[in-house]
Design a protein around this nucleic acid. Structure first.
Lengths: 226, 226
DNA sequence: CTTGAATGTTAAGTTAAGGTTAATACATTT
DNA sequence: AAATGTATTAACCTTAACTTAACATTCAAG
């Protein structure tokens, strides 16, 4: 996973702290979202699905501890990394923080270099677990972790390109992917392949998964449907 | 895994700091070992195979950073949690620490409650990953303590690299490990080995354990399956 | 109902990825 | 310092995966 794919949600009621962190993180290429309180934070988190959430402890409405607890109760955020932002020496908060499922805490005042370094260390944890992803549509399940497609409980293993193509199409069932788009996403922008290559791969998928899952939209592209 | 099974190695040149930490950790039921410098630390680590190592940054002979680097080069300690102990505000050390593969750092002076809480948070990570003890899948059992693989009751002893590779793959049966990932986890990020090295090791495993346990996903990596 | 551009199909050609082996370098024991 | 055991490399081999090309079929516009 590339640095530029990481999404970070910053939550703090003080706008200047927020801006300062945002500036530093964006400079490093992260996607940064912000919220001013716990309530906003949860809304934003649901929308953006960030990889890392940095929560200030002291906030109006809902404090960091409480926000963290709520987040941890939402299954989506079970694996999200949550870090607290605290003033030095707030011992009790630190303890409560860990108990409530925080992964780390960062002390204010923030020093850019340490801060960035810390963030990187935290995100490093994700890199191994982030290739992980299973999702299902109808009786088809795609398991990126094991690199297999499961159809009605039966494992079908596909070669790389076929798998990637399958994965792309299934990622948005019903949506039509233009040939161009497929080429750039599965083959990459710099590879040039002949006209029939996509068709041949679709053919193999139809053979292995089933004819009627893949629909051709002439002149446009293909779509997956259950 | 029970608290009482966790082994922690403390490394600091100041005996009273050492004693203080030791006292507090033992009170909580951890097994605590100590060392006064980097050299001792590495010896002790090899003997005790601790789950967590706390390294003071400033030490005679070999400092914390250097010790950490050395440790990370030993495959056994790839998954060991390493934390630095620093005086407040040693920014640069912190950065170097993370770069060298540290998981966290703890600031002095140590406050017992925060300290313990922190340690628990760190060790919690281990509970999910099966990094310790014995582990079995189907008729294959891996004994990490003794460095032995048991297949259908028969012990097969593997050399270190083969064992590490085996261990990695078996740790998540079915999951595909990318070549890169295997390299960084078994060989380490800083070692560069030729293209065929992984294959050769896989070959040896197939020879010793059985062909069909190891599946190749071309262009991606390998997975273990029973 | 034509018709031609777009896609389907098949099988044969390529190639990149991995398999295999043996030789060499490197480490440990004894 | 042999001897034994491990790890890595290099050279070559094998194949599945991928691509292409040639021909067949479809389907939607006229």
């Amino acid at each position: 996973m590339d640095v530029n794919d990481f999404k970070i949600l910053l939550v703090d009621d003080e706008t200047d702290v927020l801006d300062f962190m945002k500036y530093n993180l964006e400079k490093e290429g992260f996607w940064v979202y912000t919220a001013h309180n716990g309530v906003e934070a949860i809304q934003m988190a649901k929308k953006m699905n960030p990889h890392l959430i940095i929560l200030d402890l002291m906030m109006p409405k809902m404090d960091g501890i409480e926000t963290c607890r709520e987040l941890r109760n939402i299954p989506e955020f079970k694996n999200t990394i949550i870090t607290f932002l605290t003033a030095r020496d707030e011992d009790y908060s630190q303890i409560a923080g860990f108990e409530v499922g925080a992964d780390d805490y960062i002390t204010k005042p923030i020093k850019p270099r340490v801060f960035i370094s810390r963030i990187r260390a935290l995100l490093r944890r994700l890199e191994t677990n982030e290739t992980t992803g299973k999702f299902a549509v109808g009786d088809i399940e795609i398991d990126r972790e094991r690199y297999v497609v499961v159809k009605a409980g039966k494992e079908i293993s596909l070669p790389r390109k076929e798998f990637e193509l399958m994965n792309l199409l299934v990622s948005k069932p019903g949506r039509v992917f233009k040939r161009e788009e497929i080429l750039s996403k599965v083959w990459g922008t710099d590879t040039i392949v002949g006209d029939r290559t996509i068709d041949v791969h679709i053919r193999k998928l139809r053979e292995k998964i089933g004819d009627d899952y893949f629909k051709t939209i002439k002149g446009i592209g293909y779509k997956f449907d259950a």
